[in-house]
Simulated assay, not measured.
Amino acid sequence: MKIALFPGSFDPVTKAHVDIVKRSVDLFDKLYIGIGVNSTKQGLLTIEKREQMIRSVFEGDDRIHVIAYEGLTVNFCKSIGAQYMIRGIRTVSDFEYEKAIAQMNHSLEPGIESIFIVSKPGYSSISSTIVREVLRYNGDVSQFIPKEALPYL
């Protein structure tokens, strides 16, 4: 069974995240969306709300599972039996950052492959960070967020 993990903070989930999931899910038997818990960061949404939000977006697809985790992502991959880690790439700087992480992860756990999915051009400017900033100033984020996620904001 081919199992992959798409890790991230998903604070909040964006249309760019959804695009990466939809384009990668058919490559695997099971795809986990892993919400990384970072105890040093204060998120916009609680972990529980993020889980509910993402589940509502992907409701009905039995191949997609949503779970929060803490600690090293490669260790979490091992704990769920994931042999692949999905990462979305929007820009050249994303690639450089993700490449360094992928190389470190490979050193820690050679059995887990990182797979980069390049963002579609229309989604390359969308990030959770930018969406959070728009939300802070009461801006309309509906063009960046899946409609199922809007009630959670």
Rank of each mutant, 00 (worst) to 15 (best):
M1A: 11
K2V: 09
K2G: 02
K2D: 11
I3R: 13
S9Q: 02
F10N: 01
T14W: 01
A16C: 13
A16F: 05
H17C: 06
I20E: 01
R23P: 06
S24I: 01
S24C: 12
S24G: 07
V25Y: 03
D26I: 00
L27N: 13
F28A: 02
F28V: 13
D29L: 05
K30M: 03
I33L: 06
I33F: 07
G34D: 04
G34S: 10
G36S: 05
V37R: 13
V37G: 03
N38T: 04
Q42P: 05
G43H: 12
G43I: 04
T46N: 07
T46D: 02
I47P: 04
I47K: 07
I47C: 05
K49G: 00
K49T: 13
R50Y: 05
R50G: 03
E51K: 14
Q52L: 11
M53L: 11
I54A: 04
R55A: 08
S56H: 14
V57M: 07
F58M: 10
F58N: 03
E59W: 08
D61T: 07
D61H: 10
R63C: 08
I64N: 08
I67S: 13
I67W: 11
A68D: 09
E70L: 12
V74A: 03
F76K: 09
C77N: 12
K78M: 12
S79T: 12
I80D: 03
I80H: 04
A82V: 01
Q83V: 09
Q83T: 15
M85F: 03
G88H: 07
G88F: 09
R90N: 08
V92I: 15
E96P: 08
Y97A: 10
E98V: 06
K99P: 02
K99C: 11
A100V: 13
I101T: 15
A102D: 12
A102V: 05
Q103V: 10
M104I: 13
N105M: 09
H106Q: 15
S107D: 13
P110T: 06
E113L: 10
I117G: 04
I117V: 14
S119L: 10
P121F: 07
P121S: 13
Y123T: 07
Y123I: 02
S125T: 15
S128E: 06
E133F: 00
E133M: 00
V134Y: 00
L135R: 00
N138S: 11
N138Y: 07
N138H: 13
N138K: 12
G139T: 00
D140P: 09
V141P: 08
V141I: 14
F144E: 07
F144A: 10
I145R: 07
P146L: 08
E148T: 09
E148F: 03
Y152G: 01
L153M: 04
L153P: 05
